[in-house]
Every structure is written in structure tokens, then in C-alpha cells.
Write a protein that binds this DNA or RNA. Structure first.
Lengths: 209, 209
DNA sequence: CGTGATCCTGACCGCACGGTCAAACATTTT
DNA sequence: AAAATGTTTGACCGTGCGGTCAGGATCACG
């Protein structure tokens, strides 16, 4: 037994790296598609091409896999917001944020759904992370937006609700993918191109001072 | 044994009405909070104040409860969209739709989350209903919106994505309630008032020809 | 009051789940 | 080549799940 419980502990061997990666990828598939309780270890094991006990050789428990996924997700998930530059052009900064978020929905729909599943069910295993760094970052960026508004550089709008609307409209394409697919009879690429045009338009109109 | 499997079958006695109601209400609580697999019959039974076998006296299975909830949900869920009047004023019609949807998120958050849970996980027990009446209705209303645009009465925007954005922004307040609560430090009523103002503003700006 | 229909429950069943473990297998080190 | 370390697995365990059933309690009604 070599596994330590530490989340960030650098895996020593190549085989550990490969297997941990495979497990987390399979777990992401299952958790995002069926929720935490809906996903089973056997399912994850099969998807990862490993046996169930072998999964538990690399991770102490099902919760541990889920926790690691969520934990490593939050950071990258907030990066686009973090990248909003107070020194940049207000409208372009916010629009760039919209586009980055939309691209994340296109390129990482599983991560979006994992997140959505967790929040939907009351964030039972996420808890303080939301009230913590997320709220801090959001409040910080809202202050920037409020400042821009005070300078008359974008239209006055409740910054928090503006951010909510950006989250909602962009993540919708990942979280509700089956619905979107069913209603739009076209390929994913075309869907996202059209969505980009649409969101660009409405936020440009919305933000114009 | 008196129960027939029919979904619309009118319950004969008062006690049947009361208990079926209580069960469906408890089931809605559980399913919306934990997803289909996450909810257990014992949990639902406790919430309904009945014993587990008694639940299965009124419903043949857990799936049946879930199916009945979803089935009776879809109709009322689409009513606000159905109410869009081609003969009315375009901007006001669409804004009224936005407000109705937002009110549904405020007044029926459990239903919204039940729906979200189902779609998120690929609509495994919903299936053709989406491709059926939902798509039909949406396409119909999109045609109305396209007509309005052709007449120059509202701004040209992809109608499907417009509807997606309305769904996303309004349902967000129900589906991601814990996140919204955590970030906004205020009561629910104030949240929804602010959201109404915000959405009214952005869609007014967006739709103006 | 009696009697048939309806309503309710404790005890139980089979199964699948998360997790354990001892032992086999593989790889590296000495 | 053998010892030590690291990796994998089949078999197993306890629990909680959805669901069943025989029979008891309760009700509606003649």
C-alpha cells in the first residue's frame, strides 16, 4: 500500500498517473450523467477499464473521487470570471467572459453537468466552497462592474443578476444539452456558433450605456 | 386491491385523494432534492407520513410516482409559453412570458428542479415527450416570433435561442437556488423582485426593434 | 350490528451497492 | 535470483434498497 490520502499528492509512478487519470475521467462521465448516487463503482470501474477493488486501491472511497473532481473543477471553473480585467474595455471584457463561458460549455459539458448536479441538489458535498472563494470572487467582480456603471461606461444593471444571467445562458447549452439537441435539429458546432452570435447580440444591446 | 394503474383515473374516495396527494407532494420533495435514484421510498414515506408498503398500495412502483409527477408537470410547465398571443403586442407578450416563467421559479421551485434533474441526466424517463409536444409547441411559437421580426416589430434574433435564454435565466433562480442564496445576502422575495427588474430591462433592450 | 370492501402494516425477500481482504501477480531494487 | 515494493483481483460482507405478502384494522353501508 502506497496510496496516501492527500488530494494533491503527486502520484509517484507512471502507472499511478495513468490509472488515476482514467478513474477520474470515468468518474466524471458517470457522476455528470447520473449524479452522485446514481453513479455506481462498478459502472465507473467498467468505464475506466479496471476492477472495482482496483478503484479503491487508488481512491479511499466513492466520495473521495467525487470530492477530488469537484475540488479540481472549481478553480478552472472560475478562471474565466477571474480573467475580467478592470483596466480593459467594459463591454468587451464582459462579452469576452460570455464567450469564454460558452466555450467551456461546449468543450467541458461534463464538468458543467457535474457542477449543476451538485448545486441542484443543494450542494451537500460542496458546502462552504460556495460561500467562500466563489462569493468572494463574484463580489469582487461585481464591484468592478458597478464602478464601470458609475463611470457611465456601461448601462446600469444589477451586477449580480448580470452574472447570474451569463452563467444561466451559457451553461444552459451544456446542462440541458438533450433538450437543446431535441429542439434544434442541427449539429453541436452550429448550435454553439448560433448561440455565440445570439449572446453577443443581446449582451451588447444590454450593456450599451 | 382497488388501485388501477391508470394515471388519470379519478380517485374514488376522499382518503385516496388525500393520500395520493400527500405521497406525490412528498415524492416531489424528495425527487427534486435528491434526483430519482437519490430519493428512497422510506424517505418519501416518512415525508408523507405513511408506511412504505402503504405507498405501494397507492402507486405500483417508485417509477410510477416519478412518471406521474413528470407527466402532470409538463403541461403546466408549458402553459406560460402556450399563452403567448400572436395577436398581442410582441414585446409585451414576450416580457409577460418572462415574468410568468420567473413567477413559476419563485412559486414552484421543486417542479423546476425535478425537471432540471431529469433533463440534466439525459431525460431517461422522459424521452419522446420532449421531441413531441415540447418541440412542436416551441417551433410554433418560434414561428410567431419570426413573423413579428419579419414585420419589424421586434429586433431580429434567433427565436429558438431567445427562448432558451428565457428558460435559462428564469429557471436559474429555482434550479441554482442555493448558489443564488449564498451570493445574494437577502430574502427570496427581494431576490425575485430584483430579478424581475433585471430581466425586464435586458429583454426590453434586447427586443426593441 | 354485521359484512364486505377498502386501507394499512410488520415481517420478509432478493438484489445491488460500497467497501474489505487475503492472496496472487508484476515490477523494481539489492 | 531473491527480496521488497507496488499493483490487481476473486471472493466475500453488511447494509439499504425496491418491492411482496398475509393478515389485521378500519370504514361504508344495508
Amino acid at each position: 500500500m502506497t496510496r496516501d490520502g492527500r488530494t494533491g499528492g503527486a502520484p509517484r509512478t507512471r502507472i499511478q498517473q495513468r490509472n488515476r487519470r482514467a478513474i477520474l475521467d470515468a468518474a466524471l462521465d458517470c457522476f455528470s450523467a447520473h449524479g452522485f448516487r446514481g453513479a455506481t463503482l462498478d459502472q465507473i470501474a467498467r468505464a475506466a477499464g479496471l476492477s472495482k477493488p482496483n478503484l479503491l486501491y487508488y481512491f479511499p472511497s466513492k466520495d473521495a473521487m467525487h470530492a477530488e473532481l469537484l475540488s479540481s473543477l472549481l478553480t478552472t471553473w472560475l478562471d474565466p470570471l477571474r480573467a475580467i480585467d478592470p483596466a480593459g474595455d467594459p463591454v468587451e471584457q464582459i462579452l469576452a467572459y460570455v464567450h469564454r463561458k460558452l466555450e467551456m460549455s461546449r468543450d467541458y459539458p461534463r464538468e458543467s453537468r457535474l457542477f449543476a448536479n451538485e448545486i441542484l441538489q443543494g450542494a451537500p458535498r460542496f458546502g462552504d466552497r460556495i460561500g467562500g472563494e466563489l462569493k468572494t470572487l463574484v463580489d469582487e467582480k461585481c464591484a468592478v462592474i458597478a464602478q464601470w456603471q458609475a463611470e457611465g461606461r456601461i448601462a446600469p444593471l444589477d451586477p449580480h443578476h448580470l452574472i447570474f444571467s451569463i452563467w444561466a445562458t451559457t451553461q444552459h447549452y451544456a446542462d440541458f444539452e438533450v433538450q437543446v439537441d431535441e429542439i434544434l435539429a442541427q449539429g453541436r458546432a452550429a448550435q454553439f456558433d448560433a448561440a455565440a452570435v445570439f449572446l453577443d447580440t443581446i449582451y451588447r444591446r444590454t450593456l450599451r450605456p
